[in-house]
Protein backbone atom coordinates (compact mmCIF):
# COMPACT_ATOMS: atom_id res chain seq x y z
CA UNK A 1 0.00 0.00 0.00
CA UNK A 2 1.33 3.34 -0.93
CA UNK A 3 0.05 6.82 -0.65
CA UNK A 4 -0.70 8.17 -4.08
CA UNK A 5 2.05 10.75 -4.28
CA UNK A 6 0.20 13.05 -1.97
CA UNK A 7 2.90 13.23 0.60
CA UNK A 8 3.90 16.74 -0.34
CA UNK A 9 2.10 19.54 1.41
CA UNK A 10 -0.45 21.48 -0.49
CA UNK A 11 -1.59 25.02 -0.16
CA UNK A 12 -3.46 25.51 3.06
CA UNK A 13 -5.70 28.22 4.35
CA UNK A 14 -7.41 29.23 1.15
CA UNK A 15 -10.60 27.39 1.90
CA UNK A 16 -13.36 29.92 1.81
CA UNK A 17 -16.08 27.53 2.80
CA UNK A 18 -15.77 26.18 6.29
CA UNK A 19 -16.17 22.52 6.96
CA UNK A 20 -19.24 23.06 9.06
CA UNK A 21 -20.87 25.30 6.51
CA UNK A 22 -20.10 22.88 3.76
CA UNK A 23 -21.69 19.99 5.55
CA UNK A 24 -24.81 22.12 5.78
CA UNK A 25 -24.79 22.50 2.02
CA UNK A 26 -24.29 18.81 1.55
CA UNK A 27 -27.21 18.00 3.80
CA UNK A 28 -29.42 20.22 1.73
CA UNK A 29 -28.38 18.36 -1.35
CA UNK A 30 -29.43 15.08 0.20
CA UNK A 31 -25.94 13.70 0.37
CA UNK A 32 -24.83 14.93 -3.01
CA UNK A 33 -21.71 16.90 -3.74
CA UNK A 34 -19.52 15.75 -0.93
CA UNK A 35 -16.59 16.72 -3.05
CA UNK A 36 -15.83 19.95 -1.34
CA UNK A 37 -14.49 18.45 1.82
CA UNK A 38 -12.72 15.25 1.21
CA UNK A 39 -10.33 14.44 3.95
CA UNK A 40 -7.82 17.17 3.51
CA UNK A 41 -6.06 16.70 6.80
CA UNK A 42 -4.71 13.43 8.03
CA UNK A 43 -6.54 13.65 11.33
CA UNK A 44 -9.92 14.29 9.84
CA UNK A 45 -12.26 11.40 9.19
CA UNK A 46 -13.04 10.50 5.63
CA UNK A 47 -16.27 12.08 4.56
CA UNK A 48 -18.21 9.17 3.19
CA UNK A 49 -21.62 8.48 1.80
CA UNK A 50 -22.33 6.29 4.78
CA UNK A 51 -20.72 3.05 3.70
CA UNK A 52 -17.05 3.92 3.89
CA UNK A 53 -17.04 5.14 0.32
CA UNK A 54 -15.90 8.62 -0.74
CA UNK A 55 -18.32 10.37 -3.03
CA UNK A 56 -16.69 12.31 -5.85
CA UNK A 57 -19.34 14.99 -6.10
CA UNK A 58 -21.39 16.20 -9.01
CA UNK A 59 -21.24 18.19 -12.22
CA UNK A 60 -17.98 19.48 -13.63
CA UNK A 61 -16.19 19.48 -10.30
CA UNK A 62 -17.14 15.86 -9.75
CA UNK A 63 -15.96 14.89 -13.24
CA UNK A 64 -12.67 16.74 -12.74
CA UNK A 65 -12.40 15.12 -9.32
CA UNK A 66 -12.69 11.71 -10.97
CA UNK A 67 -9.85 12.66 -13.31
CA UNK A 68 -7.91 13.76 -10.22
CA UNK A 69 -8.46 10.33 -8.65
CA UNK A 70 -7.52 8.39 -11.78
CA UNK A 71 -4.42 10.55 -12.24
CA UNK A 72 -3.36 9.89 -8.65
CA UNK A 73 -3.67 6.15 -9.20
CA UNK A 74 -1.74 6.26 -12.48
CA UNK A 75 1.00 8.45 -11.02
CA UNK A 76 1.38 6.14 -8.03
CA UNK A 77 1.37 3.07 -10.26
CA UNK A 78 4.05 4.42 -12.57
CA UNK A 79 6.03 5.57 -9.53
CA UNK A 80 6.00 2.02 -8.20
CA UNK A 81 7.23 0.75 -11.58
CA UNK A 82 10.08 3.24 -11.43
CA UNK A 83 10.96 2.21 -7.86
CA UNK A 84 10.82 -1.54 -8.60
CA UNK A 85 11.39 -1.79 -12.36
CA UNK A 86 10.42 -5.00 -14.14
CA UNK A 87 13.19 -4.48 -16.63
CA UNK A 88 16.64 -3.06 -17.07
CA UNK A 89 15.57 -1.73 -20.48
CA UNK A 90 16.17 1.97 -20.00
CA UNK A 91 13.99 2.79 -22.99
CA UNK A 92 10.90 1.23 -21.43
CA UNK A 93 11.51 2.45 -17.90
CA UNK A 94 12.42 5.88 -19.27
CA UNK A 95 9.05 6.14 -21.02
CA UNK A 96 7.18 5.03 -17.91
CA UNK A 97 9.14 7.50 -15.78
CA UNK A 98 8.05 10.25 -18.12
CA UNK A 99 4.45 9.06 -18.01
CA UNK A 100 4.65 9.30 -14.22
CA UNK A 101 5.81 12.89 -14.61
CA UNK A 102 2.95 13.70 -16.98
CA UNK A 103 0.44 12.20 -14.58
CA UNK A 104 2.00 14.17 -11.75
CA UNK A 105 1.39 17.31 -13.80
CA UNK A 106 -2.23 16.28 -14.45
CA UNK A 107 -3.02 15.49 -10.84
CA UNK A 108 -1.30 18.55 -9.42
CA UNK A 109 -3.05 20.79 -11.94
CA UNK A 110 -6.48 19.42 -11.00
CA UNK A 111 -5.61 19.40 -7.30
CA UNK A 112 -4.73 23.07 -7.49
CA UNK A 113 -7.67 23.95 -9.72
CA UNK A 114 -10.07 22.29 -7.26
CA UNK A 115 -8.44 24.43 -4.61
CA UNK A 116 -7.24 21.47 -2.58
CA UNK A 117 -10.79 20.12 -2.23
CA UNK A 118 -10.41 17.16 -4.55
CA UNK A 119 -10.61 13.62 -3.19
CA UNK A 120 -7.27 12.27 -2.05
CA UNK A 121 -6.97 8.54 -2.45
CA UNK A 122 -4.65 5.87 -1.12
CA UNK A 123 -3.69 3.18 -3.57
CA UNK A 124 -3.47 -0.56 -3.00
CA UNK A 125 -1.34 -2.41 -5.55
CA UNK A 126 -0.80 -5.46 -3.34
CA UNK A 127 -2.35 -7.76 -5.95
CA UNK A 128 0.28 -6.78 -8.49
CA UNK A 129 3.71 -8.34 -8.77
CA UNK A 130 5.83 -5.44 -9.96
CA UNK A 131 8.62 -7.79 -10.99
CA UNK A 132 6.40 -9.36 -13.63
CA UNK A 133 6.57 -7.35 -16.84
CA UNK A 134 3.44 -8.81 -18.42
CA UNK A 135 1.33 -8.18 -15.35
CA UNK A 136 2.68 -4.68 -14.82
CA UNK A 137 2.14 -3.63 -18.41
CA UNK A 138 -1.31 -5.20 -18.53
CA UNK A 139 -2.35 -3.07 -15.55
CA UNK A 140 -0.55 -0.02 -16.89
CA UNK A 141 -2.42 -0.28 -20.18
CA UNK A 142 -5.69 -0.83 -18.37
CA UNK A 143 -5.15 2.36 -16.36
CA UNK A 144 -4.12 4.39 -19.39
CA UNK A 145 -7.11 3.11 -21.36
CA UNK A 146 -9.46 3.99 -18.52
CA UNK A 147 -7.87 7.40 -18.28
CA UNK A 148 -8.29 8.00 -22.02
CA UNK A 149 -11.82 6.63 -22.29
CA UNK A 150 -12.90 8.58 -19.23
CA UNK A 151 -11.67 11.83 -20.79
CA UNK A 152 -13.46 10.98 -24.04
CA UNK A 153 -16.77 10.53 -22.25
CA UNK A 154 -16.22 13.47 -19.90
CA UNK A 155 -15.97 15.85 -22.86
CA UNK A 156 -19.63 15.12 -23.59
CA UNK A 157 -20.70 15.32 -19.94
CA UNK A 158 -18.85 18.47 -18.90
CA UNK A 159 -20.62 21.82 -19.01
CA UNK A 160 -17.86 24.41 -19.18
CA UNK A 161 -15.97 24.74 -22.44
CA UNK A 162 -12.88 25.55 -20.41
CA UNK A 163 -13.17 22.18 -18.71
CA UNK A 164 -13.79 20.36 -21.97
CA UNK A 165 -10.67 21.99 -23.35
CA UNK A 166 -8.40 20.93 -20.52
CA UNK A 167 -9.80 17.39 -20.56
CA UNK A 168 -9.20 17.16 -24.31
CA UNK A 169 -5.64 18.41 -23.79
CA UNK A 170 -4.97 15.67 -21.23
CA UNK A 171 -7.01 13.03 -23.05
CA UNK A 172 -4.84 12.83 -26.14
CA UNK A 173 -1.69 12.58 -24.01
CA UNK A 174 -3.35 9.74 -22.10
CA UNK A 175 -4.02 8.10 -25.47
CA UNK A 176 -0.33 8.47 -26.37
CA UNK A 177 0.53 6.74 -23.08
CA UNK A 178 -1.95 3.94 -23.73
CA UNK A 179 -0.64 3.37 -27.25
CA UNK A 180 3.00 3.42 -26.13
CA UNK A 181 2.29 0.90 -23.35
CA UNK A 182 0.33 -1.28 -25.76
CA UNK A 183 3.35 -1.30 -28.08
CA UNK A 184 5.59 -2.21 -25.15
CA UNK A 185 3.35 -5.18 -24.35
CA UNK A 186 3.25 -6.36 -27.92
CA UNK A 187 5.41 -4.76 -30.58
CA UNK A 188 3.33 -3.12 -33.27
CA UNK A 189 0.12 -2.82 -31.20
CA UNK A 190 -1.03 0.73 -30.74
CA UNK A 191 -4.77 0.90 -31.13
CA UNK A 192 -6.15 -1.03 -28.14
CA UNK A 193 -9.86 -0.29 -27.79
CA UNK A 194 -10.21 1.61 -31.10
CA UNK A 195 -13.31 0.22 -32.80
CA UNK A 196 -14.19 -0.73 -36.37
CA UNK A 197 -15.02 2.88 -37.29
CA UNK A 198 -11.74 4.23 -36.00
CA UNK A 199 -13.04 5.68 -32.76
CA UNK A 200 -11.87 5.07 -29.20
CA UNK A 201 -15.14 4.74 -27.28
CA UNK A 202 -15.67 6.76 -24.14
CA UNK A 203 -15.93 5.13 -20.74
CA UNK A 204 -18.76 6.28 -18.48
CA UNK A 205 -17.75 7.55 -15.04
CA UNK A 206 -19.47 4.60 -13.33
CA UNK A 207 -17.42 2.14 -15.38
CA UNK A 208 -14.17 4.03 -14.89
CA UNK A 209 -14.83 4.10 -11.15
CA UNK A 210 -15.58 0.36 -11.02
CA UNK A 211 -12.14 -0.33 -12.46
CA UNK A 212 -10.23 2.31 -10.55
CA UNK A 213 -11.70 1.10 -7.23
CA UNK A 214 -9.74 -2.11 -7.67
CA UNK A 215 -6.62 -0.06 -6.97
CA UNK A 216 -7.95 1.93 -4.00
CA UNK A 217 -7.87 1.29 -0.26
CA UNK A 218 -10.95 3.41 0.38
CA UNK A 219 -13.30 3.18 -2.57
CA UNK A 220 -14.88 6.11 -4.36
CA UNK A 221 -18.38 6.46 -5.75
CA UNK A 222 -19.79 8.55 -8.55
CA UNK A 223 -23.46 8.27 -7.72
CA UNK A 224 -23.96 11.97 -8.24
CA UNK A 225 -21.99 12.26 -11.45
CA UNK A 226 -23.68 12.54 -14.81
CA UNK A 227 -23.71 9.02 -16.17
CA UNK A 228 -25.69 8.84 -19.37
Amino acid sequence: MKEAMNAKPEKQGNTDVSRRRFLGYAGGLAGAALLLDSCKKEDEPVISSGDGVMDLGMNDTGLLNLIFVISQVEAAFFEQVVLTPFSTNSDEIGLITRMRDHKTAHKELIRTYLDGKGTHVTTDFSAINFGNKDGVLENAELLANISTGNCNEAARLLISDKHVEIVAKMGSVNARHAAAISNMRSLGNFFGPVDAIGEEPGILPANAIATINRFLTTKVSGNNLPNK
Binding site: R176, A180, E199, E200
Partner: peptide
Protein backbone atom coordinates in the same frame (compact mmCIF):
# COMPACT_ATOMS: atom_id res chain seq x y z
CA UNK B 1 -12.95 22.20 -32.51
CA UNK B 2 -14.17 19.95 -29.68
CA UNK B 3 -15.06 22.83 -27.41
CA UNK B 4 -16.59 24.68 -30.35
CA UNK B 5 -19.27 22.04 -30.84
CA UNK B 6 -20.31 21.54 -27.23
CA UNK B 7 -24.01 21.94 -27.75
CA UNK B 8 -24.14 18.95 -30.05
CA UNK B 9 -23.43 15.85 -28.02
CA UNK B 10 -23.18 13.58 -31.01
CA UNK B 11 -20.53 15.74 -32.65
CA UNK B 12 -18.60 16.21 -29.39
CA UNK B 13 -18.51 12.47 -28.86
CA UNK B 14 -17.40 11.71 -32.42
CA UNK B 15 -14.66 14.35 -32.49
CA UNK B 16 -13.32 13.36 -29.09
CA UNK B 17 -13.28 9.64 -29.87
CA UNK B 18 -11.66 10.23 -33.27
CA UNK B 19 -9.13 12.60 -31.73
CA UNK B 20 -7.92 9.97 -29.30
CA UNK B 21 -7.42 7.54 -32.20
CA UNK B 22 -5.34 10.24 -33.91
CA UNK B 23 -3.16 10.45 -30.79
CA UNK B 24 -2.60 6.68 -31.00
CA UNK B 25 -1.73 7.05 -34.69
CA UNK B 26 0.76 9.77 -33.76
CA UNK B 27 2.31 7.41 -31.23
CA UNK B 28 2.66 4.76 -33.93
Amino acid sequence: QIFEVLTDNITVRALMNIHSTKARQATF
